[in-house]
C-alpha cells in the first residue's frame, strides 16, 4: 500500500484541495500584490518572490465562475511545478488558513466531488479525508494557459 504526504489547502470555508508535499515551497502573509490589467478575472495579480514574478490564481473564484476579490489576501501559498522538462515555475494560491499536512494512502482514493463540476479540469486525483473529498491539484495545468479566456 503506497503512502505519500500532502498539504491540505483551504480556499474558503467549503473548498479544499491538496498538493504534494514538495509542491508547496513557501507561504507569504499579507503579500504585496501588483495588478496586471487585461488579465483573466480569476488571476489578475502577481507578487514578487525571490526575484520571481509569480501569478496569484484565485481557485475559489475560478471554480465558482466569479472574479477574484479586490481585497488583500491575508495568506498565499507559493507552489513549484514542472512547467517543462528541466524547468521549474512558480504559482501562488490564496489560502484561507495555513495548510495542514496529511499522510495519504491508496485506500483513500475516491472520485472527485460532483460540485463544482470544474474540479475535473484542474484535479488529477482525489482522496477522502474523513467525510470530505479532497481533489489533488494539477498545478502544471492550473498555471498553464488552459484556463485563460
Amino acid at each position: 500500500m503506497a503512502e505519500a504526504s500532502a498539504w491540505l489547502l483551504a480556499f474558503d470555508p467549503e473548498l479544499r484541495a491538496a498538493v504534494g508535499e514538495r509542491e508547496m515551497v513557501h507561504m507569504v502573509q499579507f503579500p504585496v500584490l501588483f495588478e496586471i490589467p487585461d488579465t483573466p478575472s480569476h488571476c489578475r495579480r502577481v507578487l514578487l518572490w525571490q526575484g520571481e514574478i509569480v501569478p496569484v490564481l484565485d481557485v475559489a473564484a475560478w471554480l465558482r465562475g466569479g472574479r477574484a476579490g479586490a481585497a488583500a489576501y491575508p495568506l498565499v501559498g507559493i507552489f513549484a511545478y514542472q512547467a517543462a522538462p528541466e524547468t521549474i515555475a512558480y504559482g501562488a494560491l490564496p489560502l484561507e488558513s495555513a495548510p495542514l499536512r496529511r499522510r495519504v494512502s491508496d485506500e483513500q482514493a475516491c472520485a472527485l466531488p460532483e460540485q463544482p463540476a470544474a474540479w475535473a479540469r484542474i484535479a488529477h486525483a482525489c482522496f477522502r479525508d474523513g467525510e470530505r473529498k479532497v481533489p489533488v491539484l494539477n498545478l502544471r495545468y492550473l498555471f498553464s494557459d488552459a484556463l485563460v479566456g
Binding site: I36, T39, I53, V54, G91, F143, S144
Partner: peptide, 20 residues
C-alpha cells in the same frame, strides 16, 4: 522584461511583458 505568466496571458492582450 519577463513574459506575462501563461495563466494570465490573453491572446492579443494589453500587456506585452512584465518588468520587475
Amino acid at each position: 522584461t519577463r513574459p506575462v505568466p501563461a495563466c494570465m496571458a490573453k491572446p492579443d492582450g494589453l500587456i506585452e511583458a512584465l518588468i520587475a
